[in-house]
Nucleic acid binder design. Structure first.
Length: 486
RNA sequence: UCCUGCGUAGCUCAAUGGUAGAGUAGGUGACUGUUAAUCACUUGGUUGUUGGUUCGAGUCCAACCGCAGGAGCCA
């Protein structure tokens, strides 16, 4: 670049991208980045031993995986190596750093392999290491959550999780939604829904008392009672009503004593909120987001999806592919009730307009009627939150749930009530104190706009995209009742 | 929280109320460009905990602990 030339943003960007791509300071090459074009050259990889097959011909096959992709790499270690004897005493799980030539593989099962010039044993394992070659149940793996990332199934799950996270940010930022960080500690009794974890620095053994004999929270850290957030929605609404389109993506906490395969005490939630969106655009936003996620996964996680399709859920790939282009069915709650009544099927719980859809009802709708996700809108106001916009019929609200086969509700959302007087009367019906929601009401008092949004349970999306049956296996370290290990 | 089921070798699982078994991993040996390698031999157990019934309990009963599936709540 000649002296005196102004460096443009594009120049800086190109230079930055070059550097980012090369990562030339890294001590090892990731297995996923080993390419045919490197045949004949010396490469260095690091990873964990999956199996070792010794040959009395004087060499061993080491199958090494580094987590960067589903498939590992086969390393051929010859007895000429100085530490060969030591190598034949390494076990599954041993950490190795291998330098050698990338060569075409004469054997079946892999296009190339590494002919080692050195194998450094960084750490061996012994018989007490749980992850031996044989099958280990998912239940057992939960007991060793700190090690389970070394397995095929959890590794694949976390790679899918990572790509779904990337797809989430790509989709929303790519559509001009601003990524907003909402607080984790909150004082609003958010929605009155769900038990909350209390946050306090008071001495639990001997808390300060007020005049009425209750605990004096004015002496607590925040000078009031506080909790971990059960949703960033109210805060999200505030910024949407000023910055237009925003989304949050972060941890959320529910202290419900739920012991099921689809509930966690700590989970991640994606919550977009958009000004001027009505329920109609909200449902389309949800469908567009899901479609984007499925397409992105099929493009970026082929081997992992193939694994799930083969070992976990036979129809997974076809289902995801089908959903990339499919129209997403949308029906009203009233239509859903009619479908259930006409089903001619005996349900354990009766179908009754006005009561919430039971799990068996939701499953019937998406597994037997629509054979895929289905969006249900316009629920009776009595069974939904106070902030959802009242329809003109005075009986239903502009709520939407996206129901998925096997998992149930993956998305819950609504167009928000933007009329101050209606919102106040709805809060009164729910016995909520307006003083607690003063700032939330301000959004309607000053420059109110129609707006809508939804919350997506990120782990449930990962479940849906992997076929994994238990939500505890799609988050690295699950938090559930009676379990906060690791 | 409720209902149902389960808890046996490092792991995956057997075992009519009557001597605790297999596969796999580990060990030893054989064999081999192998790939869930193969073959032979072999180490390994306070049957979740506590109490009860019985001549005798892994097995039957009770309580507790833990886990799973389903339900409720929800995302």
């Amino acid at each position: 670049m000649p002296r005196g030339t102004l460096r443009t943003g594009a120049d800086l960007n190109n230079r930055y991208n070059e550097r980012r791509r090369t990562m030339d300071f890294a001590p090892t090459t990731l297995i996923k980045n080993l390419k045919e074009s490197q045949l004949g050259s010396i490469v260095t990889i690091g990873g964990w031993l999956r199996t070792r097959r010794d040959s009395k011909g004087g060499f061993s096959f080491l199958e090494i995986n580094d987590g960067s992709q589903f498939k590992g790499i086969q390393v051929v270690a010859d007895q000429e190596l100085g530490n060969y004897d030591e190598l034949t005493k390494t076990y599954t799980g041993a950490s190795l750093k291998v330098e050698g030539e990338l060569v075409p593989s004469p054997g079946q099962g892999q296009p190339f392999e590494i002919k080692a010039t050195s194998v450094e044993i960084l750490g061996n394992t012994d018989q007490s290491y749980v992850l031996q070659k044989g099958r280990v149940s998912l239940e057992k793996l939960r007991e060793v959550a700190h090690l389970r990332g070394r397995t095929n199934v959890i590794g694949a799950t976390m790679r899918v999780r990572n790509q779904l996270s990337k797809a989430t940010h790509d989709f929303f930022t790519g559509n001009d939604f601003l990524y907003l960080h909402t607080p984790i500690i909150t004082s609003s009794d958010c929605e009155g829904a769900g038990q909350m974890f209390q946050v306090s620095t008071l001495d639990l053994e001997n808390p300060p008392k007020n005049d009425l004999g209750g605990i004096d929270y004015s002496q607590d850290f925040f000078g009031r009672k506080t909790h971990l957030s059960v949703s960033g929605q109210l805060n999200a609404e505030a910024y949407a009503c000023g910055m237009g389109r925003i989304y949050t993506f972060g941890p959320t906490f529910r202290a419900e004593n739920s012991n099921t395969s689809r509930h966690l005490a700590e989970f991640w939630m994606v919550e977009p909120e958009a000004a001027f969106f009505t329920l109609n655009e909200n449902t389309q936003l949800a469908a567009a987001y899901l479609r984007y996620c499925f397409k992105h996964l099929l493009d970026t996680c082929q081997d992992d999806i193939d694994f799930f399709n083969l070992r976990v859920d036979k129809g997974l790939r076809a289902r995801l592919e089908g959903l990339v282009d499919a129209e997403y069915k949308c029906i009203t709650y009233t239509e859903a009730v009619d479908l259930l009544l006409k089903a001619g099927k005996k349900f354990e719980f009766p179908v009754l307009w006005g009561s919430d859809l039971q799990s068996e009802h939701e499953r019937y709708l998406c597994e037997e009627v629509f054979n895929g996700p289905v969006t249900v809108i316009d629920y009776p106001k009595e069974i939904k939150a106070f902030y959802m916009k009242l329809n003109d019929d005075g009986k239903t609200v502009r709520a939407m749930d996206v129901l998925c086969p096997h998992i149930g509700e993956i998305i819950g959302g609504a167009e928000r009530e933007d009329r101050l007087d209606v919102l106040e009367s709805r809060m009164a019906q729910h016995d909520l104190d307006p003083a607690d929601y003063a700032w939330f009401l301000d959004l309607r008092r000053y420059g109110s706009v129609p707006h809508a949004g939804f919350g997506l349970g990120f782990e449930r999306l990962v479940q849906f995209c992997t076929g994994m049956g238990n939500i505890r296996d799609v988050i690295p370290f699950p938090r559930t009742p009676k379990n906060a290990s690791f």
